[in-house]
C-alpha cells in the first residue's frame, strides 16, 4: 500500500519538535488503514491510528482525501500500553471505533515503563477494548510521568 501524506507547515514543525519522522507517520497510517484498528470523529472526517514502533507507541491523526492522507497531528509516548483497568461506560467521547462502530468511553489504562506498571487516563472501545491515549495526555502528562519515573527509579 502506497501512503501519500500531505503535511502542512505547522504540522511539520510539530513532527520535528517531537522527533517523529514522516516514515513513522506513513507506517502508522498504513497500519490503521490495513488492520482497521483506528477510531474516527464522524463530524470531522478525522481518523486516529496507533502503532508500536521500536520502544514507543506512535499516533497519527489524519483525514483521507482523494487517495491521499492529510496529517493533522502526530505524537508518541514511551510507556507501553497494557490493558484498560477501568472503563467508564457512562462517559462517552466523540470518537467512534472503526471496527465496532461504538463510541469510545473514558478509561484508565495500565501502562508499563522501566518495569513499573501504573495506570494513565485514556479512551477505550467498550466492546473490543481497543484503547488510545489522547494527545494532551501523551504530550504533557506522560512525558512528565516518564521523566519522574526515571528519576525516582534512579
Amino acid at each position: 500500500m502506497v501512503i501519500e501524506v500531505v503535511i502542512l507547515k505547522d504540522v511539520e514543525k510539530t513532527l520535528s519538535e517531537r522527533g517523529i519522522s514522516v516514515d513513522n507517520v506513513r507506517e502508522v497510517i498504513e497500519h490503521g488503514e490495513t488492520t482497521g484498528e483506528k477510531i474516527y470523529l464522524p463530524a470531522e472526517n478525522k481518523f486516529l491510528a496507533k502503532k508500536v514502533i521500536g520502544k514507543a507507541t506512535f499516533y497519527t491523526m489524519y483525514s483521507p482525501l482523494e487517495g491521499k492522507f492529510t496529517l493533522h497531528s502526530a505524537y508518541a509516548h514511551r510507556m507501553s500500553m497494557k490493558e484498560p483497568i477501568t472503563i467508564v461506560t457512562a462517559e462517552t467521547t466523540d470518537w467512534v471505533c472503526y471496527k465496532c462502530n461504538e463510541k469510545l468511553v473514558r478509561s484508565n489504562i495500565d501502562m508499563e515503563y522501566l518495569g513499573i506498571t501504573r495506570a494513565a487516563p485514556g479512551i477505550s472501545c467498550p466492546k473490543c477494548k481497543l484503547s488510545f491515549i489522547e494527545e494532551y495526555v501523551a504530550g504533557k502528562t506522560l512525558v512528565v510521568a516518564e521523566s519522574l519515573l526515571e528519576k525516582k527509579r534512579a
Binding site: M79, A119, L142
Partner: peptide, 29 residues
C-alpha cells in the same frame, strides 16, 4: 499540570465511595 493526583475524600463517604472507583488515574495517584 499534573501528572500526580492526590484525592482526599474527607469526612463520611460510606454511601458514595463506589462512585470514586471511576476516577481518572495517572501513574502517580
Amino acid at each position: 499540570a499534573g501528572p500526580q493526583l492526590w484525592y482526599h475524600l474527607c469526612g463520611d463517604h460510606s454511601r458514595d465511595w463506589p462512585i470514586w472507583k471511576d476516577i481518572i488515574v495517572s501513574p502517580f495517584t
